[in-house]
Write a protein that binds this DNA or RNA. Structure first.
Length: 332
DNA sequence: AATACGTGGCT
DNA sequence: TAGCCAAGTAT
């Protein structure tokens, strides 16, 4: 993992760069290592320190975040970079309390930065740690109610020295050995004290409250292209789903779906995109049309490849569908 | 306290 | 393959 400092680097006296620790931890919120790595490397190449990131236009940061999801993270990332760059002379605070006060940094991320970047004895509790603690101590009560007990176990086990290494080790244990589905208990360094293994309940832990079913919502996205092949894009309002992101013009997404198109031109249907969000399924109808011009008052014209890169996945899917249709039909 | 907020990988 | 799930935060 490119954000880690190797043992040899550590022996040479290097500490992890707080900027990189922060950037990686925000990207890893509810996100797998595999999904975050490419974005991390591109961010670091483009903005190597907190001042560079703070100077960047917000739309550039949001566009670079496209595809990673949970876009409030990108909005808060840029806001946090500005606070650290402008108000804190580019230095991240070292205590959990001060870190916690920055935009986009909650209990987990504050503890992770304090422990990993600053070697503070902070207790890091993420989903992995909760699972490991639930099994190690056979806590059968369901999440989220059992969180305080799991945190108490984690706090008791946190060492005073090298808490960052310890935290990463427990998270690695959860990610590779104490996994949700097929835990490799035979390889686990904690197999002997593990209460769940002793009682054979590891697959049932941690227990969770059942999740509510996802409703289906419907909507329409519009791809208007001008004679030069540019497409009409909009910026979504800051609040709510995909807030602040570049997008295709679209209807509201409701149980019923449908609305007026952004331009009065000759729209034709090109297909449907299905996409599942955290709390609903979306069936998005895609309409396309050629326009003589794309008026500035209804959005911004963009080259298709730039638009694809800057948009959340659901809109990239819709735009790809329309572009394929355009090629197939050989439409001028 | 409960809900809103994305996506892609894995099974 | 349809569903489950991940190194959470804000409100």
């Amino acid at each position: 993992m490119p954000w880690r400092v190797s043992p040899s680097e550590r022996d040479a006296g290097h500490r992890p760069d707080p900027f990189r620790v922060w950037l990686s931890e925000v990207m890893l919120q509810q996100t797998t290592v595999a999904a975050a790595t490419g974005h991390f490397l591109r961010f670091l190449a483009r903005w190597p320190d907190v001042h560079a990131l703070a100077r960047a236009p917000r739309e550039a940061v949001l566009a670079e975040w496209a595809g990673l999801g949970y876009y409030a993270r990108a909005r808060n990332l840029h806001a946090c970079a500005n606070v650290v760059s402008r108000d804190l002379d580019g230095r991240f605070p070292e205590t959990e309390k001060e870190l916690r006060a920055l935009p986009g940094i909650g209990a987990y991320t504050a503890a992770a930065i304090a422990a990993i970047a600053f070697d503070r004895p902070a207790t890091v509790v993420d989903g992995n740690v909760e699972r490991v603690m639930a099994r190690l101590f056979a806590e059968a009560a369901p999440l989220p109610g059992v969180k305080p007990q799991l945190r108490a176990h984690a706090e008791r086990l946190t060492p005073q020295s090298r808490a960052g290494d310890y935290a990463q080790a427990v998270m690695d244990l959860g990610a590779t050995i104490c996994t949700p589905r097929n835990p490799a208990c035979g390889l686990c360094p904690w197999r002997t004290p593990c209460a769940a293994r002793a009682s054979g309940t590891q697959l049932d832990l941690p227990a969770r409250a059942p999740k509510p079913a996802k409703p289906v919502r419907r909507g329409v996205a519009y791809v208007a292209h001008d004679p030069r092949g540019r497409v009409l894009t909009v910026t979504r309002p800051d609040d709510g789903l995909l807030g602040g992101m570049r997008a295709l013009p679209s209807s509201d997404w409701t149980e019923a779906g449908g609305s007026a198109p952004p331009l009065a031109i000759d729209w034709r249907p090109v297909g449907e995109v299905r996409h599942t969000f955290t709390h609903f399924h979306l069936v998005l109808k895609v309409m396309a049309a050629k326009a003589r011009a794309l008026p500035a008052d209804c959005g911004e014209a963009m080259a298709p490849d730039a638009a694809l890169r800057a948009m959340p996945s659901v809109f990239a899917k819709a735009l790809r569908l329309a572009l394929e249709d355009l090629q197939r039909t050989g439409s001028d």
